[in-house]
Computed example of a mutant assay.
Amino acid sequence: MPADLVDLNAFVAVARARGFRDAARITGASASTLSEAVRRLETQLGLRLLHRTTRSVTPTEAGALLLERVQPALGEVEAALDMVNGLRDRPTGTLRLNVPVSAARLVLPAILPGFLEAYPEIKVEIEAEDSFVDVLASGSDAGIRYDERLEQDMIAVPIGPRVQRFATAAAPAYLDRHGRPTHPRDLIGHACILGRFASGALTSPWQFEQAGEIVRVEPSSRLIVRVGGATDLAVDSAVAGSGIIHLFEDWLRPHLDSGALEAVLEGWWQPFSGPFLYYSGRRLLPPPLRAFVDYVRTARHPSAT
């Protein structure tokens, strides 16, 4: 006969807390109730699962093996029950997303307000960073990445604009002083503004494309900023005339439209595919994430065209 889920949950709680009293405080059950549940489970299995002393409670070899295998399974059961309950009532809970700073600035503003209005009982937490972290290990439910950064065994859902470009631009005053490049190779010798990822890698070479010709340029730089946190500083420096910047077109568009920045080599700006919302395909989706995935898939957003 399969072990009772109540007894399994009691065993997991005691094993994790390393004691019946601490487990009782965490679960709200009495220590005697937990002890009886563990004894039932041990009797049913014919194996001792916990070493009990007056000072501590530790798993036996069999208990450690059971704990390792049963914890994820019980988590799936809990997630399944939460999902079913979410069908009965409006989804509730917290949605945690790990996204690059560019997505927090250029993608989510067109999506989150409508989602929050549609699901007022869901709270959203956004972690914006540009280091390549494991989304699940970081405690997030899902992440936003570009296709070349997607991890294996993950499900990817298009989110935001499907085509983007990197734009190259500089202040008109800078170009008046130093000349206007007509070919990507003309960037050599110009003062260019670069970014550096947390890994230490620079945002170079810059890549351009026109009529099937691809040109990569390794620009020199007197100003290097941390990608994400200091990107606005790079933009402000370009506006102030410190050099040529190469960044998401949407990030630079307000300054291009106002005339604070002038497009450089616009015919060479290379398009690339837009970002994806991605999450593990090996687990049941908690209701807040399911609601967000459905919203992204079905709602029309200004940035999705």
Results as ranks from 00 to 15, higher is better:
Val107Cys: 07
Phe272Gly: 08
Val215Asp: 09
Pro120Leu: 02
Leu285Pro: 01
Ala29Met: 10
Pro219Leu: 06
Val70Glu: 09
Gly229Phe: 12
Arg180Cys: 02
Leu5Glu: 08
Val77Trp: 04
Arg69Met: 14
Ile155Asn: 04
Thr27His: 11
Pro254His: 09
Gly195Pro: 05
Phe20Tyr: 15
Gly243Ser: 07
Asp4Met: 04
Glu151Thr: 02
Met83Ala: 15
Pro287Ile: 00
Gly63Trp: 01
Trp269Thr: 10
Leu97Gly: 05
Ala118Ile: 04
Pro271Gly: 13
Gly189Gln: 01
Phe276Gln: 02
Phe208Asp: 03
Arg300Ile: 08
Asn85Trp: 15
Gly19Cys: 05
Gly212Arg: 02
Tyr295Leu: 06
Val38Met: 04
Pro184Glu: 11
Val296Asp: 01
Gln44Pro: 00
Gly93Leu: 01
Gly19Leu: 07
Arg69Pro: 04
Thr33Tyr: 14
Ser204Phe: 03
Arg180Phe: 15
Gly274Phe: 05
Ser220Leu: 09
Ile26Arg: 15
Asp134Met: 10
Ala110Val: 01
Ile224Val: 14
Glu262Tyr: 01
Arg253Pro: 09
Tyr146Glu: 03
Phe197Ala: 14
Ala291Cys: 12
Pro2Trp: 08
Ala17Asp: 01
Thr60Val: 07
Gln152Ala: 15
Ile144Val: 07
Leu47Asn: 05
Val227Asp: 04
Leu67Ile: 05
Glu76Tyr: 07
His190Val: 00
Glu148Asp: 12
Gly200Lys: 01
Ala167Trp: 03
Glu68Asn: 14
His178Gln: 14
Val225Lys: 12
Arg290Ala: 14
Gly200Leu: 08
Arg297Cys: 07
Arg196Phe: 11
Arg145Phe: 11
Phe132Ser: 12
Val99Ala: 02
Gly160Trp: 01
Glu262Gly: 09
Glu266Asp: 12
Met154Arg: 13
Tyr278Ser: 13
Ala29Leu: 13
Arg177Glu: 15
Asp7Val: 04
Val77Gly: 00
Arg253Thr: 12
Glu213Ile: 15
Ser140Gln: 09
Pro288Asn: 14
Arg88Tyr: 13
Ile155Val: 13
His178Ser: 06
Leu34Thr: 09
Leu97Pro: 00
Thr182Met: 00
Gly143Met: 03
Leu5Asp: 11
Val296Lys: 00
Glu121Lys: 12
Asp294Arg: 05
Met154Ile: 00
Ala80Arg: 14
Pro120Glu: 11
Arg145Cys: 07
Ala37Asp: 02
Pro91Asp: 03
Arg180Gln: 13
Leu247Val: 09
Leu175Ile: 13
Phe208Glu: 03
Tyr174Phe: 15
Thr168Arg: 07
Gly143Leu: 05
Ala3Leu: 11
Ala198Asp: 09
Thr27Gly: 05
Asp130Thr: 09
Leu34Pro: 04
Arg145Gln: 10
Glu148Ser: 08
Arg185Gln: 14
Arg55Gln: 06
Leu49Ala: 04
Pro161Ala: 15
Leu34Glu: 03
Glu121Pro: 07
Pro158Trp: 00
Leu49Met: 06
Thr33His: 15
Val296Met: 03
Gly228Val: 07
Ser237Ile: 03
Ser140Glu: 03
Val70Asn: 02
Leu116Glu: 12
Leu202Glu: 12
Asp236Gln: 13
Leu112Val: 13
Asp153Ser: 15
Leu223Asp: 00
Glu61Gln: 12
Asp176Trp: 14
Leu116Ala: 13
